[in-house]
Design a protein around this nucleic acid. Structure first.
Lengths: 143, 143
DNA sequence: GCCATAATTGAAAGTGATTTTCAATATACA
DNA sequence: TGTATATTGAAAATCACTTTCAATTATGGC
């Protein structure tokens, strides 16, 4: 599935008339083998550890391309940091965020998605995507 | 209901040992008589039209106070702008955002809220608040 | 009202995250 | 291989706020 995403990205690059570069390969590789929900800063530091030559701007630019190509999604948890998570085609999930320790849990719920579509339809909207985040305290932090 | 919010804010100010100022009164007044979901920039411009003396920093500071006092809520739609919406006590709603024309529709759905609590409970979380935004095209923009 | 104390203000400087600029370099294709 | 064009890294610029600071303004006691 890592290979599948790499292939999708290569095709995206080719279709756009862009070029395949050493940096993009490295960033994609490190990105795909990282935890999900990594902030750009965290990914940059991880990259720098093995590949000191890679610049900040390149990481930003490349992550945007990942999102554009569909293999990644940008997420904001309101802490001022942008995060990207890698995503399989068609996959979708929402987040539970612990405001105590920062733990992030992913979940999927078909019933909620369906309700959303119904609500949207009621207002004449055609939903393209959505964002659902639940903020609270995890079991540990509830004390 | 505008009066009710003004009263809540006055009480908040008093309880915190803060002062009631001309600027805060003006900003609150303009804020409450504005469309919901106004960005800070938009509110600032609207304010400046009638009250040229009011500074940017004061608007930012005052909106934060509104949020703290409970009469307003900060919202982010991922366009890099912070918005504030005025809110009646205990009120909660979510948003439908048209990515075509920017129209924002508010909605409430008890069934979704309940499902959220169930999901959260399943992971041991105690939910404090949540954010649900549906992005898509409104009836007009579906064309 | 008058004073003293402390909060508030506006302008400007400072932040932090992200973007842009630009000259040098690398890639793709003829 | 040559050439046109995309990409890169470093540094400067931008954007949306936040902080600083000296001047101004409320508030409570007398």
């Amino acid at each position: 599935m890592k290979q599948a995403k790499k292939k999708i990205f290569q095709e995206f690059i080719a279709a756009k008339g862009l070029k395949s570069t050493r940096q993009r390969d490295i960033i994609l590789d490190v990105f795909l083998s990282s935890d999900r929900h990594l902030s750009i800063e965290e990914l940059y530091l991880k990259l720098r550890a093995k590949h000191p030559g890679i610049g900040y701007a390149t990481v930003y630019r490349t992550l945007k391309l990942f999102a554009e190509s569909g293999i990644a999604r940008e997420i904001h948890f309101g802490d001022g940091q942008t995060r990207y998570e890698h995503l399989a085609a068609g996959e979708h999930h929402d987040h539970l965020v612990c405001t105590g320790c920062g733990t992030i849990v992913e979940f999927e719920n078909e019933a909620i998605e369906q309700l959303q579509d119904e609500i949207a339809a009621g207002y004449g909207f055609l939903i393209k995507n959505h964002k659902l985040e639940l903020y609270g305290l995890c079991a540990k932090c509830r004390g």
